[in-house]
Design a binder for these strands. Structure first.
Length: 524
RNA sequence: GGGCCGCUAGCUCAGCUGGUAGAGCAACGCCCUUUUAAGGCGUGGGUCACAGGUCCGAAUCCUGUGCGGCUCACCA
């Protein structure tokens, strides 16, 4: 019966692959990382969450896993980001390490740290808690001195690998380390010599000064990116690390690193290539030219943590997808709810699909499995409910059937997101507000007034009569007063929400509730 | 030029460690007797880009072709 109970989810497949290729180990190291040279955006998040999912899969197979996240904060400050205040002042820090750049947003002691903190603070909300490694500190503490020496010793080997893909071969006097000048802090330097041991001599290209430093004690030397990466694979014994498609092309940095890692007596990790993600309904780009960046914070404004995870867990890493802020938001929530229903057996599907959906649902949870499904209410209906109550979440929820405390808590979170979406991103046609006593009255003809009065009588009993009778009498309110029904409905929408159209009238009035409707119609 | 990815219903896509196709929207129809980018139910619609190959069997694996896209070759 159950020959094939194996998960075909990509996270599980990669977990298996890691075990297969790396053998049984005491523990497995999974790595991710990025240069905090700007706001970390949702595209960068794809790597973190991808690794987090594989880490979870490995742990569920009973493995010990070390999940490291590398902040490559010993990189150079190459350009001033558009979203930072005081750009002129910041420009004076170009070519220095980003850990020396002040944070003009006042978040932290330096610019890199500011970006790091933003991420470190939000990641636990989506259940991601790696061990952070700060590369600037590692280099300055001399942790990579041996790695750098190894690179110097194997200079020719390294050069050969790099030259294979370069259009211009590296220069004759190229050295595989780069230096931040002790005179200016900038990387505008040239390495002149290496003594075969621990000392290198460099020249500051701006001031012309030269200096000899000891790799074990200096805090100014580092490996260039294409060497830094494989060196760290070896240093941390990395078993798994995915990378973006820009790195994964032939001749890209993953490719050269894989060839280079032997130089450092290491082994290339298992990897996969993840595609970029785009943004829909919000200008289109992850990072607009104005400097506005879509980050995990922005996504969590509209999507709950579970649904956020769902989008990434439910999509194969090597396919591009868009995070939507437009009407697709409705569909995403509906899809998640369907997934949940399948997980709890509330919706029947074939076994194959069920297996897939269940796994995606599990991986979407921030921590632990809920013991009961959410209070299921179509997202669209929830949006209507919230608008009827002008965003008052507690009142909106109180109109619903009984639910458990945990269901109520989860629904609250969803309501916050729904309301954020309505107020910030929903299309104008989608939005409305119930009229109140301060709104100007709609001018009515005698005929129309009579129809409104007739409607009032229908509303008074709408909870007590059959649906069919209710609808019929709705129309009769217009007909009996010689009004075109279409025009009549428009009129009611103008009175109720100040617009020409709205949600289907019958159900809409019922959802509003008798009292509310009568208080509005009662003004006429 | 190299590498990678995509090409499935009108549209957007899912299905891909193989067992002769699904969802949403659109269309059409029915119902709440007729309005709505916002109710409910249902129906139709696809030689799965093309050509070969492996297999009892391929949208799914392999090879080739075409079209589209991304990416690398400077730095990180």
């Amino acid at each position: 019966m159950s020959e094939k109970n194996v998960s075909t989810h990509w996270a599980d497949i990669y977990a298996d692959k890691i075990i297969r290729e790396k053998g049984e180990k005491e523990h497995y190291t999974c790595a991710s990382g990025i240069t905090p040279s700007g706001t970390v955006h949702i595209g960068n998040f794809r790597e973190i969450i991808s690794v987090a999912l594989v880490v979870r899969a490995l742990r569920e197979k009973g493995k010990n896993v070390r999940f490291i996240y590398s902040w490559d904060d010993y990189d150079v400050f190459r350009k001033v980001p558009k979203n930072m205040p005081e750009p002129e002042m910041l420009a004076t820090y170009l070519r220095k390490p980003i850990t020396l750049v002040p944070d003009t947003l006042g978040r932290a002691e330096n610019y890199a740290r500011g970006n790091e903190k933003d991420v470190e603070r939000i990641l636990p909300a989506v259940g991601v808690e790696p061990e952070y490694i700060y590369q600037a500190k590692r280099y300055r503490d001399g942790k990579y001195a041996e790695g750098m020496r190894l690179a110097l010793e194997k200079r020719d080997e390294i050069r050969t690998i790099l030259d294979e893909f370069r259009t211009e071969p590296l220069e004759k006097d190229w050295w595989p380390v780069s230096v931040f000048s002790n005179f200016t802090d900038k990387d505008t330097t040239t390495v002149l010599d290496w003594d075969g041991e621990w000392n290198i001599t460099y020249r500051d290209d701006e001031t012309g000064q030269t200096e000899t430093v000891d790799l074990r004690t200096t805090s100014c030397a580092k490996l260039p990116w294409r060497l830094d990466w494989p060196m760290r694979w070896a240093h941390e014994q990395v078993d798994f690390e995915p990378a973006g498609k820009d790195h994964h092309s032939e001749g890209g940095s993953f490719d050269t690193s894989r060839k280079m890692v032997q130089v450092f007596d290491g082994e290339a990790p298992v990897s996969f290539q993840y595609d970029f993600i785009s943004i829909k309904g919000r200008g289109g780009k992850i990072s607009s030219s104005s400097g506005e960046v879509v980050s995990l914070y922005d996504v969590l404004e509209v999507y709950t943590p579970e649904v956020t995870r769902y989008m990434f867990a439910g999509t194969r890493p090597n396919t591009e997808f868009a995070i939507s802020f437009d009407l697709d938001v409705l569909k995403i929530y509906e899809d998640y709810d369907t997934c949940e229903r399948i997980y709890f057996g509330l919706q029947k599907v074939n076994e194959k699909r069920k297996g897939k959906e269940k796994r995606i649902y599990e991986l979407s949870q921030v921590k632990g499995m809920p013991s009961e499904p959410s209070y299921q209410i179509p997202f669209r209906h929830l949006c209507n409910l919230l608008q009827l109550h002008e965003g008052d979440i507690e009142r909106a929820i109180s109109t619903l059937d009984d639910m458990t405390d945990s269901q109520r808590d989860r629904l609250r979170e969803r309501c916050k997101c729904a309301w954020n979406w309505i107020t910030t991103f929903a299309p104008e046609d989608f939005k409305y507000r119930l009229s109140n006593e301060n709104d100007p009255l709609v001018e009515l003809t005698d005929q129309e007034l009579a129809a409104v009065h007739a409607l009032r009588e229908v509303v008074k009993v709408m909870d007590q009569i059959e649906n069919k009778e209710y609808t019929t009498r709705l129309y009769d309110s217009a007909k009996d007063n010689d009004l075109d029904t279409g025009a009549f409905f428009k009129l009611i929408y103008r009175i109720m929400i100040g617009k020409e159209k709205g949600p289907k009238l019958g159900p809409f009035l019922q959802t509003c509730g008798k009292e509310k409707v009568l208080s509005i119609l009662g003004r006429y």
